[in-house]
């Protein structure tokens, strides 16, 4: 029983990281209907930025997270301006954007693998604070887990506030519903799209650093699997639905950890994609998604 609860805790930890990544997927999909397959690589960049901030710049843990979030924001906005914005302005079919995103993903993975950038090798991630474990009702909770939960919670609350209570958030919701009418309100739609990319990247950047301290080994292709799983989580929750992405992420995190713990760790990746197939076959709009009507 203790083992079960211990795994629940681990699932919660993994789910938190997935939640931060999948929010970016779901927000960017919501705003321009693009499945941004390069998003997992932004997460990878975030892990590396945190790594260098801690090892080279001697930043403390919290400033390293902020540093990584800011750099990821800037890079994702630049990517949006160079790779997607010119295509959007030409009103190309959505598939073109999707293929571009895959291209951006390959570029980031291979470019950062160059020796002069991050290099292709695995790097051990530093632990910038002492790991203390607490015994709580027979469970062992580490300071890492507590920090992951707290940071995720704070970021989710900030995001929720931003989207529901601010003018910018209102504009984001308007743009995601109907771009042309948003223009007529005087909303600078391009700026709102950039901002969405920036927000998604900030969360992915934070996720990268958190992932680094939880599973302390990083490499340029590390974003592929978590990125895909966060994507599955976003689809499971109903892509475009913010709360769905969070819940979907915790489900995927739990399922993955429990599969590894009680079935076999070789199935841990397969199970996430099995869920994707089942969702797409039975409820393609996801748990919380609405079936999209035909827009006239």
């Amino acid at each position: 029983m203790e083992y079960f609860f211990q795994q629940l805790l681990n699932g919660f930890q993994l789910g938190s990281v997935y939640a931060l990544i999948s929010l970016g997927y779901t927000m960017i999909y919501g705003i321009i209907r693009l499945i941004n397959f390069a998003h997992g690589d932004i997460f990878m960049l975030g892990a590396y930025f945190g790594f260098y901030a801690i090892t080279r710049l001697k930043f403390n843990f919290f400033s390293a997270i902020i540093f990584s979030m800011v750099l990821c924001m800037i890079i994702n906005v630049i990517i949006e301006k160079i790779a997607y914005a010119p295509l959007r302005k030409k009103n190309v079919p959505r598939i073109n954007l999707l293929i571009t995103a895959i291209g951006v993903s390959f570029f980031l993975e291979n470019f950062t693998s160059l020796k002069i950038i991050f290099g292709p090798d695995y790097q051990p991630y530093p632990r910038p604070f002492k790991i203390i474990t607490f015994d709580f009702l027979g469970l062992t909770i580490s300071s890492i887990q507590i920090i992951v939960f707290l940071i995720t919670l704070v970021l989710l609350l900030i995001l929720d506030y931003l989207i529901k209570r601010t003018k910018i958030g209102l504009a984001m919701r308007a743009v995601s519903y109907d771009k042309d009418t948003a223009f007529l309100m005087g909303i600078n739609v391009d700026r709102i799209i950039s901002l969405t990319f920036a927000l998604g990247a900030a969360l992915a950047g934070a996720a990268g650093v958190l992932y680094g301290i939880c599973y302390p080994q990083i490499y340029p292709y590390m974003g592929v699997m978590p990125g895909l799983k966060a994507f599955v989580a976003a689809v499971l929750g109903g892509i475009g639905v913010i709360s769905g992405a969070v819940l979907g992420s915790y489900i995927i995190g739990m399922v993955e950890v429990f599969t590894a713990a009680f079935v076999s760790s070789t199935f841990r990746d397969a199970i996430a994609f099995a869920i994707l197939i089942i969702v797409l076959l039975t409820r393609p709009q996801g748990l919380f998604g609405k079936e999209e009507g035909i827009k006239l």
């Binding site: 003018k167 209102l170 504009a171 919701r173 519903y177 109907d178 309100m185």
Partner: peptide
């Protein structure tokens, strides 16, 4: 904006 409240729609009018 059918996903937004009447107030939010009006608020956007005075963006």
């Amino acid at each position: 904006f059918a996903n937004l409240s009447v107030y939010e729609n009006l608020r956007l009018g005075a963006y």
